[in-house]
Design a protein around this nucleic acid. Structure first.
Lengths: 191, 191, 191, 191
DNA sequence: CATGAATGAGTTTTCATTCAT
DNA sequence: GATGAATGAAAACTCATTCAT
């Protein structure tokens, strides 16, 4: 069992520089930035870039995974606040709002992921996010007005269709139109 | 007064073949299909393709315009049914459902338009669609439960964020989650 | 012997329009102007253009031939003035000066001819020019200082290397440097 | 202080092969040879060619610069011979003769430069050539028969209009007709 | 005869990826 | 491990020329 030798310090440093540069470049010039440009921005040679990420798809996938990690962090924080007594339904709505805003800031990353068909998700971060969201959802269904049939998939469905590339008023309006569908009252049967 | 000479029969035929082929190829392989491939699919030489559409952007724009034309047709039909006594709110919901399905079939066209920055809209078709929708909205607000602040823009906002590239169950679920936000009851103030 | 039927009036008109347009367009945008552009400028369809000139080379050749015709006119006029008593050497020098200026005005035609390897000359016009020049040369050798070994070819050699695409000062300087070589005194043997 | 790292051995080799091939191909088939052809002749992929010269204009410019370098070498050698006691006027005439011959060998390079509007000159080589020529001119004006108003520009004017694409007899004749204009005797005022 | 649509080889250039140094 | 030069398959677009209408 060849224990994976601990990565060299500079290799770690390079990986970080590359990810940061990729994120920046993609946000700046859209997907379709050349690998050369990303490499240059990371102050690294293309070869090095390819040693860390064998494919452009892989690199973009990693950038996306990072974003997911941040979403997971956010969801976990919300869940902890709920455990400490915060209103679950309010946390759910606030979480959605923040995530939509975040994906607006990083919108090109999303586009990039789609454009390149980057495989959906890096398991570790994904799992964390999913766990925290599930807890949050259950809490809001118990103590609040979140409709009982709502699932984590529904969150993803909505978040992945948020108008991240539209002006902030559009995003606000979208929240107004969309959030009611998550509540019991909003979806109450016709009288 | 140089009366624009009637276009030749074969030119018209080719234009149609090209548009059809473009639509098909784009739907099949995404935007970024080569012009050569589209030309081949249309059984035409590239030169011909470029005679009809001087730029790839123009071609994609034309394909998009066609789609918009179809949406306009659909909206007008719905409006006429309402004038003939059909339930306005039901027509609104059905219209949205149908359009989401249509954009799922043509999903890549949408992507293509965004990707290439094809100028937003072909005025003529756009105007028709807008007019029919406005009438439809007013009718549903008068006789049905459509929320009074809903506008044509809201329709566009929702339609443009529909999960057109997801399986049909996802699209159905999306309708379930989204439609309530358009109604007065769905958005009723918290008690 | 099928006597070549007299060309139709409109065909003649078209030929002239095409030649004029070609000359204008080439002078304007350099050789490499598209045949389509020339056709458009002549208010004629490309097909018509190709009926009159089966090849781009042919068209350019015809334009060049026209220029030669003008040179021939000029040479004949000079020769007639000499017959009427004008100073032959002065006429020679003036003729060269005028021709250089003319080729500067039409410079692109020359470039075009070279670029496309347009076959050297249209016999009729060429012959007229050659005859008039020969007479002029003989007169200047008899009554003036034109070096006895100078031939029509020498004139062509100089004219074809005139700096037609340089500013007029350059052309003037070129005359200053070049004309002495045509005279007996200028080429007097080293003492 | 980022010391420009020494270029790799193979890169240098390729650059040379490319320049040589470009020169050859251009001389052979005129400007307008495809980049693909040049690449093939250099036994290199197009991409490599574009790494070294980002634009066709750049490549042609480099080829031209090389030619100018050779002219500069020649002029410097002539100047040194004069410093060592050689006859200045003879060196001037010989230099012009050699350069005309050289530009006949490389004639298409000249055409190419004009055709592509390659920015007139590569400063370094140009400067060397100009310096050597100026010295040579002064020497020939002092010790020989070179006309006092002749400048480096005059040399360029003549060389750039030499009949480089004509047979060698034409070039010889051209020298006979042109050189007198550079001398004091040749341009002596009319008696 | 005129028209102008169609042809298709060819042009320059880009970019993800590989591999010698 | 890092470097950056080399690769070569596209891609979008042009234009002289042909040919159906």
């Amino acid at each position: 069992m060849t224990q994976a030798r601990a990565p060299r310090a500079d290799a770690v440093r390079n990986r970080k520089k590359i990810l940061a540069a990729a994120r920046h470049q993609i946000t700046l010039h859209g997907p379709g930035v050349g690998m050369d440009e990303i490499a240059a921005a990371a102050e690294v040679a293309v070869g090095t870039l390819y040693r860390h990420f064998p494919t452009k798809t892989d690199l973009v996938g990693a950038v996306v995974a990072e974003s997911i990690g941040e979403v997971a962090d956010d969801a976990e924080a919300a869940q902890e606040r709920v455990e400490s007594g915060a209103n679950a339904m309010q946390e759910v709505e606030a979480f959605i709002g923040r995530t939509v805003e975040a994906s607006a800031r990083d919108r090109v990353v999303k586009t990039a992921a789609q454009a390149l068909g980057a495989a959906s998700t890096d398991t570790a971060e994904e799992a964390r996010a999913r766990a925290a969201l599930a807890t949050l959802i259950t809490a809001a269904q118990t103590s609040g007005d979140l409709h009982p049939d709502v699932t984590v998939e529904d969150f993803y469905l909505l978040l992945s269709t948020a108008p991240s590339d539209r002006p902030s008023e559009a995003r606000a309006r979208w929240l107004t139109l969309t959030l009611p569908g998550l509540t019991s009252r909003g979806r109450a049967p016709h009288v």
